[in-house]
Amino acid sequence: MPSRSAERSYADPDAAADTRAGAWLSAGPEVELWLDYDPAARELPGFALGRRPLSGPAQEEVTRLHRAGIRCLRLTEPVRLCADAPAASARALMLLREATGQGLAILWQAVCTDGCAARRRFHHLFPPEESTGIPEDVVADWRATYFPSKCVFRRGPGFVEVRDRRFGTLELFTIDEPGHLAHLDALAEGVEVSLLPEAVHRDLAEAGLIAEQAGRAWFLPMRVRRWPFPSLTV
């Protein structure tokens, strides 16, 4: 029989990582779903599909909803925008990114207590229906300047191009370093900040292309699902 001194007394890093990953996955948002954009139509029998949690990857969940005919969703919990936001808010924001890119209408409440909303980092997402802690002029600007595909990326052979109009003028970023490209798919669903190579983290953060919340970094631009007309607005 082993003595007590032979027992493991240190934390297992793999077990800790599994625990963090489990907490991240379990933080998937709950949504209420409808089959139509129009508020009047949503009141008709059969158009409301009730509530359900969305714990899977945001892209897969939104693709599945759209194929099922969903055209409007409501996030049932307020979404915090700040750097100290919990995992549930980060997961909700990624769902917002995918739903915005798919052209769904989203009803949600934004919460900000550190002034980050004024920096327009999330102004490419479908504007909030309600807000807490955000100045009225910031919310009004968000709603007035919003248009589809305001910050998008598209893939080419060996590169990703980001077109960003969140801050007024068009900014173009071309990501073609193999080390950076290798992390983009994972960043779409959130990567532990400590696991990102320093150069990847630095370059994407300086360009304003990632958010960091709940110990994870995630990619802010939405993928192009449909090209708007006229395309020169993007």
Score class of each variant (00 low, 15 high):
Ala41Trp: 07
Ala186Arg: 14
Asp114Pro: 02
Arg74Asp: 00
Leu81His: 09
Glu130Gly: 10
Tyr10Arg: 15
Pro135Cys: 04
Ala211Phe: 06
Arg74Val: 02
Gly168Gln: 08
Pro39Ser: 09
Leu170Pro: 07
Val152Asp: 00
Ile210Phe: 09
Arg4Gln: 13
Glu60Trp: 04
Gly103Val: 06
Ala15Lys: 12
Leu209Gly: 04
Asp38Ser: 14
Leu81Ser: 06
Thr145Pro: 06
Gln59Pro: 00
Ala90Met: 04
Ala211Glu: 06
Leu35Phe: 04
Thr76Glu: 04
Leu54Val: 02
Asp203Lys: 15
Ala217Gly: 15
Arg155Met: 04
Ala17Asn: 08
Pro86Lys: 13
Thr113Ser: 14
Asp164Asn: 10
Ser149Ile: 01
Asp12Gly: 03
Leu125Thr: 03
Ala88Tyr: 05
Asp38Gly: 04
Leu54Asp: 00
Asp164Gln: 10
Pro57Asn: 08
Ala85Cys: 06
Gly56Phe: 07
Ala58Glu: 01
Thr100Gln: 07
Arg202Ile: 02
Phe167Cys: 13
Cys112Phe: 03
Arg51Cys: 08
Arg225Glu: 06
Ile210Cys: 04
Arg51Thr: 13
Thr63His: 12
Pro148Ala: 03
Arg71Thr: 01
Leu181Ala: 08
Pro228Gly: 03
Leu195Arg: 14
Leu196Tyr: 09
Trp108Gly: 02
Ala41Phe: 06
Ser131Ile: 05
Ala144Val: 07
Gly133Ser: 06
Ala27Trp: 05
Leu204Gly: 06
Thr19Ile: 07
Ser231Arg: 13
Leu125Asn: 02
Ser26Thr: 11
Leu95Tyr: 08
Leu195Trp: 08
Asp14Gln: 14
Arg8Asp: 08
Asp14Phe: 10
Leu93Phe: 05
Leu95Val: 09
Glu212Arg: 15
Gly156His: 10
Thr169Phe: 12
Glu192Val: 02
Glu129Ile: 06
Phe153Tyr: 15
Ala40Lys: 12
Ala110Thr: 07
Leu93Gly: 00
Trp218Thr: 06
Pro128Leu: 01
Cys112Tyr: 01
Arg71Phe: 00
Phe126Glu: 01
Arg119Asn: 11
Leu54Pro: 00
Trp108Phe: 05
Phe47Cys: 04
Asp12Leu: 06
Gly133Glu: 05
Asp141Ser: 15
Val139Leu: 15
Leu49Trp: 05
Thr132Ala: 14
Cys116Asn: 11
Ala117Thr: 09
Ser55Asp: 10
Phe153Cys: 04
Gly179Thr: 09
Leu184Pro: 10
Thr113Asn: 12
Ala27Val: 03
Pro178Arg: 13
Ala118Thr: 08
Trp34Ala: 03
Pro13Ile: 04
Leu95His: 09
Ala199Glu: 13
Ala87Gln: 05
Pro78Trp: 02
Leu96Thr: 03
Ala11His: 09
Gly168Asp: 02
Glu98Lys: 12
Ser9Lys: 15
